[in-house]
C-alpha cells in the first residue's frame, strides 16, 4: 500500500506520520506542497503543524496551495484522504469537509492525552478496530469544531461524525470536551466516508514505551482495510 504525506511550509508532524505509516507497512512518500502532482497513492495524509504560520485562518493558505487541486481530485474520485490536526483544518478550508475549527473556547493551547469515542465504523478507517474508545494525543489552539445547525443536522443524519471527545468509559459530556467543540466533535467524515479529518494525533501513540498504543491500532487496522 502506498501513502503520500504532503509537506507544507510549517508542517511539523510530517516526519512522525512518515515513521508511523512505514512502521505499519505503508510505502510512504513525502510530497512538497509546490509540486503539481501526487505520485500514485492509496492514501494521502495532510499532517499536523502550522502550515504557512496559521496566517489569515488556520489551513486557509494551504487550502489554496498548488498541490491541493490534486488532493481534491483524488478525494473526489473516492481516494482516501486523512487530515490530522492542521490537516483537518486544511480539509475544512478546501470545502472537502463541512464546518470549521475555531479557536479553543478558553483561549488556551491544549496539549494532552484525551479519549475519543468511535461513532461510525462503517468506513475503511475504523471498520477493523474492536475498541470503542481510543486514547490519543491532542495539541492545538484551534480545535473547537463549529458548523451551522442545518449542517450539523446533515452530518448527524449522514453518520459523518467520526470521533467525539469522551472519558475512558466513552461518556461524552461537557467535562470531557477540551476545546468547546460542538457535540464534542473531534473528527468528521465527508458523506462518502473516504475523507477523515480529526484533531487527535494517532501518529503520536505508536510506541509502547513512550506513549499508549492506540495509534498503532489505528494504522495496523487501516492498512488491513485497504
Amino acid at each position: 500500500m502506498k501513502s503520500s504525506v504532503i509537506i507544507f511550509p510549517g508542517s511539523n508532524c510530517d516526519r512522525d506520520m512518515d515513521v508511523a505509516l512505514r512502521k505499519f507497512g505503508f510505502k510512504n512518500q513525502m510530497v512538497w506542497h509546490n509540486d503539481a502532482e501526487i505520485p500514485k497513492s492509496d492514501l494521502i495524509v495532510l499532517p499536523g503543524g502550522f502550515s504557512y504560520g496559521d496566517y489569515l485562518r488556520c489551513g486557509s493558505i494551504a487550502g489554496k496551495s498548488k498541490i491541493i487541486k490534486s488532493v481534491i481530485d483524488f478525494a473526489n474520485s473516492g481516494g482516501l484522504v486523512l487530515g490530522i490536526c492542521n490537516g483537518f483544518q486544511i480539509l475544512t478550508e478546501t470545502g472537502l469537509l463541512p464546518g470549521i475549527l475555531q479557536q479553543n473556547k478558553y483561549l488556551n493551547f491544549i496539549c494532552k492525552n484525551v479519549f475519543v469515542k468511535i461513532k461510525n465504523k462503517e468506513n475503511k478507517y475504523f471498520k477493523k478496530i474492536k475498541k470503542e474508545v481510543l486514547e490519543l494525543h491532542i495539541a492545538h489552539n484551534e480545535g473547537n469544531y463549529f458548523c451551522s445547525s442545518n449542517e450539523l443536522k446533515s452530518i448527524e443524519d449522514n453518520g459523518q461524525i467520526a470521533v467525539t471527545y469522551c472519558d475512558h468509559k466513552g461518556i461524552e459530556d461537557e467535562k470531557n470536551n477540551p476545546n468547546g467543540a460542538l457535540k464534542n466533535i473531534a473528527g468528521i467524515f465527508n458523506k462518502d466516508k473516504n475523507i477523515l479529518g480529526m484533531m487527535p494525533h494517532p501518529e503520536r501513540m505508536i510506541d509502547p514505551f513512550l506513549s499508549g498504543e492506540d495509534g498503532s491500532i489505528f494504522f495496523k487496522t487501516l492498512i488491513e482495510s485497504l
Binding site: 485562518r57 475544512t92 478550508e93 463541512p98 464546518g99 463549529f146 451551522s148 449542517e151
Partner: peptide, 9 residues
C-alpha cells in the same frame, strides 16, 4: 468569498 473570509463563520 474565496479566501479572505470563511463564510461558515
Amino acid at each position: 468569498k474565496k479566501l479572505l473570509a470563511n463564510l461558515v463563520i
